[in-house]
Design a binder for these strands. Structure first.
Lengths: 337, 337
DNA sequence: CGCACGAGGTGAAACGTTTCACCGTCGACG
DNA sequence: CGTCGACGGTGAAACGTTTCACCTCGTGCG
């Protein structure tokens, strides 16, 4: 591949001049700039970022570490981060941890070796040591580390108040993994705002595969509940299927609520009521925090909390009356025929 | 960050010896190896991959360019590629194109500047020039370029035969974008194997947002069709919603079939019949082709085609009888109460 | 005993950039 | 007319590795 030397030779100038002309590191005569630019396109110059990194100590690259690439919430986040980074002139190196601590550590190491300028990190669980690279956590906080997250407490409260307002009396609460801070925050928020009874609670993985024990309790004909508050949308979609298999009507008999607002939430049948996380804003804010730090902004770790929003859909309408009215699933129509 | 020189000093040996001891580029006495390894952990050595790249000309990194990070099929693929790459000792640099040609070209350039050793590329449309880096396309072929793809012709045929076998007579066919080779292959396969009537055909984007014109035709009470063959699962999920809104029963009145088998296909209501693409194998095979090339395997461009498999679920049961029997959606049960 | 050879180590060049220090020339000003 | 500064440009060092060529012992064999 063509290098700077080739450009310089082609343009008949020194390597230094070619560099200055291309990077603008130092003012240069218009004629020379022109000549160099032409030469560069002529020989097909491709700058060598690694060499630049070596010399300057900056790679113009952010690393992103995610617990999992299957959950659409994370990939939406990744896309947002990638776009924001690109707009700030940074590339993105992605390392998907396998969800477990070991491969997460490996991913962090790999990125450190690549000398990323900064790290956007969604810790898989309670984070241990934070990397020595400038880092911002997303969605889950780490001590002494800039972080941005949606307001998960509020998300929990919104769900509780919504169910209450919709006239539900005995919800099932499916908590996320207790070693995930956001899961704890949502649970906390829910408990703060929910004063009445609870049918039962259980801890489930952030996944659409509902544990068999929970499936049994949900399917139990004796079980008395009229709502399921789910740890996230993936769980909610799994619950939706479980309920339908066990013959319960959603939302007339049971309301289902998730959190995240992934793309498939509105494609579910019935469409899923959920709490939307501001993914684009999360990504943009993470990149902003990082670039700030790199620009030399000092001070203690900053925490940014972004607002969430309840999105009411048919799986849990705003009121019981609404439930009857909007229970527009295939079942309703079929029965009406 | 600690560098090789620090390790060498700490161990009391030359830089060269330290390098050999750590990389194994040359046999070295056990005692020295031990001393260097200890020193390395003591000073917290982090190798500088960029420097290594500069010297060796290999970055031990693959670039991955995807048209879109929202479609779960691509993210599943990404995960497979990332894992396979890691197992071969390669890191992964991801650049999600925005789907359009311009940002795709930008992504390819960025990766070229990062001097990735190879490129795994899912072209957004018909690929123009292929990069000068060793490249393997996935899912969509490019001329003179190694490629791996599922058997999309067969996928189309499987759908056609399945619908026929299930007793469907007049399907709607929703083709993917005609500038995407795989979409054309599926359509071709379907047409090859389908001999009867077709209600109507239309071209739709690979997306769950069904164009308004198509929605109207599907919802038209006069429209006479008993199946919808969809370009992929995202489209199928969108169609499912459209049909349910327009009051058609799936699968009793209309069967719906997708392609890809994304995770949400089985969470749909009713669960989606689809053709499964072997994502893990696609990723592994892509990495294998690439590492082969890097190992010096020459010869003309190779094309690998991997088999697909029909996955029958409730949205389109195997037989009409089955339809009646397995129409186990909430509606059926509800009606039975 | 002398020589050659192998094992174990080291010095230094090279990879492609950026950037500091320097150099020549020309115009302006004292 | 001499000097100085600005301007436009260049040479070369440095970033952290790898790796080639070389060097120095110790040892085994003739």
């Amino acid at each position: 591949m063509a290098k700077l030397e080739d450009v310089a030779r082609e343009a008949g100038v020194s390597i230094a001049s070619a560099s200055y002309a291309l990077s603008g590191g130092k003012p240069v005569s218009a004629a020379l700039r022109r000549r160099v630019l032409d030469a560069a396109t002529r020989v097909g110059y491709v700058p060598h970022r690694q060499a630049r990194t070596l010399r300057t100590g900056r790679s113009q690259t952010f690393g992103v570490v995610l617990p999992d690439l299957v959950n659409p919430f994370f990939t939406a986040l990744l896309q947002a981060i990638e776009r924001a980074a690109r707009e700030s002139g940074y590339g993105t190196l992605v390392a998907g941890g396998g969800g477990d601590g070991a491969s997460e550590a490996a991913a962090l190491d790999l990125l450190a070796e690549h000398r990323v300028d900064g790290l956007v990190w969604v810790p898989a669980g309670d984070p241990g040591a934070i990397p020595q690279v400038p880092t911002v956590t997303v969605d889950r906080a780490a001590p002494d580390c800039d972080g941005v997250a949606a307001d998960h407490d509020e998300a929990g409260r919104l769900v509780a108040r919504h169910l209450r307002g919709a006239g539900r009396r005995r919800p099932v609460v499916l908590h996320g993994p207790s070693d995930v801070p956001t899961a704890r925050a949502r649970s906390r928020g829910f408990r703060d705002a929910w004063t009445g009874e609870i049918a039962f609670e259980a801890e489930v993985p952030f996944d659409h595969r509902i544990p068999a024990a929970v499936v049994r309790r949900l399917a139990d004909a004796e079980a008395d509940y009229d709502a399921v508050a789910c740890a996230n949308d993936a769980v909610a979609l799994g619950v939706l299927r479980t309920l339908q298999r066990s013959g319960r009507r959603v939302p007339t008999q049971v309301a289902v609520v998730g959190v995240d607002d992934i793309a498939f939430a509105e494609l579910a049948e019935p469409p899923l009521t959920t709490v939307r996380q501001p993914v684009d804003a999360l990504g943009a804010e993470a990149v902003r925090l990082l670039t700030d730090r790199l620009a030399g902004v000092g001070g203690p770790a900053r925490r940014v909390t972004l607002p969430v929003r309840l999105v009411v859909r048919a799986s849990s309408p705003a009121s019981p009356a609404g439930a009857a009215r909007t229970d527009g699933g295939p079942g309703a129509r079929w029965a009406a025929r």
